[in-house]
Design a protein around this nucleic acid. Structure first.
Lengths: 154, 154
DNA sequence: TTTTATGCAAAGTATTTGCACGGGA
DNA sequence: TCCCGTGCAAATACTTTGCATAAAA
């Protein structure tokens, strides 16, 4: 089983702006600020986190605009919502292709890894035949403490 | 890889009441109603679902009591919150031991399966060595459509 | 110029807390 | 009897909507 671990693809904000524009959305200063903040982060960010960080770039920003921009970025598949035991309001830049998540529960750092796809498919087929379910989607996520947090810990 | 699929352990409500009492909580009519409703269901239930179902058994029930009872049952490990793409407010009777979830996205039916533990452990070890994370927990969930919903579908 | 995007304020939704009363042990 | 648990009402937190103005194209 192979499982290369990849950090989030940081710095793709320019491509997101192009993508937004290609879908008929306008490029505005508030959107640029929100896009930059999310696309430059390797950490999970809540709408409020994004709001606070992006206000440093564009002080007139409203929280409502963060919600509306996040909604569009999610529709376009540029960011994804991440579910954790501690909550489900946080977002991260999406990795293209199906990836599994490795999440630091201290700092919210996220990395992606690809489990052996064949193994997952075998499991899904087996569960499907035992249960009669048609399986449409799967989540595989690991939670832990990242290297930096482990070093900082004590 | 083995993956026996097990329906939720229905009908254990009496044991939950004993457990509550053993932890110093009183057995009251509202608690009995909530416990019965959840323990008899194979489906995900939100606090509001529980409220509506349990009111049939105890009409004076308040929604607040549902929240407070659910909180205690979760603390005791008798129920668990289930995260889905469509939301994370629903609960199901917990299976003892670590189990993975198979969830019907139409009706909320939940079954448990145990993926090959060795495979998950191997993956976790590999991801840990590549990433430097200390891995503490994992989620493996399959989403699909159960047999009954597939038959009802058209 | 046209139409979308914005921020504010208000409205929703989900959940938690304060409190006086009622019921379990 | 004692004190925990309850329901109601209010408070809180999070998110969405309505609307007049501002800005992109």
């Amino acid at each position: 089983m192979t499982s290369p671990v990849k950090p989030t693809a940081v710095g793709n904000g320019q491509a997101w702006l192009v993508n937004l524009q290609a879908h008929g959305y306008r490029l505005t200063a508030p959107r640029r600020a929100v896009v930059e903040v999310i696309s430059l982060s390797q950490h999970l960010l809540t709408p409020l986190d994004i709001f606070e960080l992006a206000r440093a770039r564009y002080p007139r920003l409203g929280l409502v605009t963060v919600y509306r921009t996040v909604e569009k970025l999610e529709e376009l598949g540029l960011i994804q919502r991440v579910h954790q035991p501690s909550g489900c309001q946080a977002f991260i830049a999406a990795f293209s292709g199906h990836q599994h998540l490795l999440i630091c529960q201290r700092c919210g750092r996220v990395e992606f890894f690809s489990g052996d796809q064949a193994t997952i498919n075998t499991l899904a087929a087996e569960v499907s035949s035992h249960s009669g379910y048609a399986i449409e989607e799967h989540w595989l996520q690991l939670f832990g403490t990242c290297l930096i947090c482990r070093e900082t810990e004590r």
